[in-house]
């Protein structure tokens, strides 16, 4: 397990060393702060538009950062030739796969936490009244979302180049968020049942429009889905990596 956490820790360092997270944060912050300063016919505490815009920005940037980080890991290690040096240490290939995935998730979650905290601060400052409990649930649900996203991006990185992996991951993400529930009718059962249903973890409607949180059995189902689904791309990635010469 030492090796798994060591590899994961490296990715968390990477996301903050490589400035991508700061660029995203800055852009998000500028847009949010400006949007928060907007006035609509002198009406006070108009905030739902800000909640929706803020959440959309936070989700968007977190998804891009996480997917990009996960998708570039293995291709970048191959290209930089850092892989043989690492694998010549006492680390199993499965530990490497697990560490890359865990690191992608933790790094994405760290960036998301920073963005989300800032967003909540801006929304509260604007005078937004929203349920802290639902805000907490929205946060946790999106963490599950990142869990699946990290697995997909990480798993694809054993098969694809970094740009192909990133593109495919982001494409699937936005496709499922937009058409997920209707995919069976539009594209048939195969894609509907095999692609990851990211829309499960999107609680923006509940937070923005005050619908409240989810019951416990739904949480159990979401967590189970996230953990089980993540195993699929990771297993495929591990299988591929085990057969690869370093």
């Amino acid at each position: 397990m030492n090796a798994v956490f060591a590899v994961a820790r490296l990715l968390v360092l990477e996301i903050f060393r490589k400035k991508d997270a700061y660029v995203a944060f800055l852009l998000m912050a500028v847009i949010l702060v400006y949007a928060a300063g907007m006035d609509f016919y002198d009406e006070r505490n108009v905030v739902r538009y800000l909640l929706e815009l803020g959440l959309s920005l936070v989700f968007f940037f977190s998804v891009i950062l996480t997917a990009a980080l996960g998708a570039r890991q293995v291709p970048a290690e191959r290209e930089a030739r850092t892989l043989p040096v690492l694998l010549a240490k006492p680390i199993r290939r499965s530990e490497f796969v697990a560490g890359k995935f865990l690191g992608t998730f933790l790094a994405g979650a760290a960036a998301f936490t920073l963005f989300y905290g800032f967003f909540l601060g801006v929304a509260s400052f604007k005078g937004g009244v929203f349920s802290a409990a639902t805000a907490g649930e929205t946060y946790l649900a999106f963490l599950l979302n990142l869990w699946v996203l990290a697995a997909v991006a990480s798993g694809l990185s054993y098969f694809l180049t970094s740009s192909a992996g990133l593109t495919l991951t982001v494409l699937v993400y936005f496709l499922m968020n937009t058409y997920g529930p209707a995919l069976k009718a539009k594209a048939g059962p195969f894609l509907y049942f095999t692609l990851p249903h990211f829309e499960f973890f999107d609680l923006r409607q509940r937070l923005v429009h005050g619908w409240g949180g989810l019951p416990g059995d739904v949480w159990a189902a979401l967590a189970a889905y996230a953990f089980l689904y993540a195993l699929v791309p990771l297993s495929l990635g591990a299988w591929r990596f085990a057969r690869e010469n370093a």
Partner: peptide, 8 residues
């Protein structure tokens, strides 16, 4: 899937 989506 549809059932879970309806609950969410």
């Amino acid at each position: 899937i549809e059932r879970l989506n309806r609950r969410v």
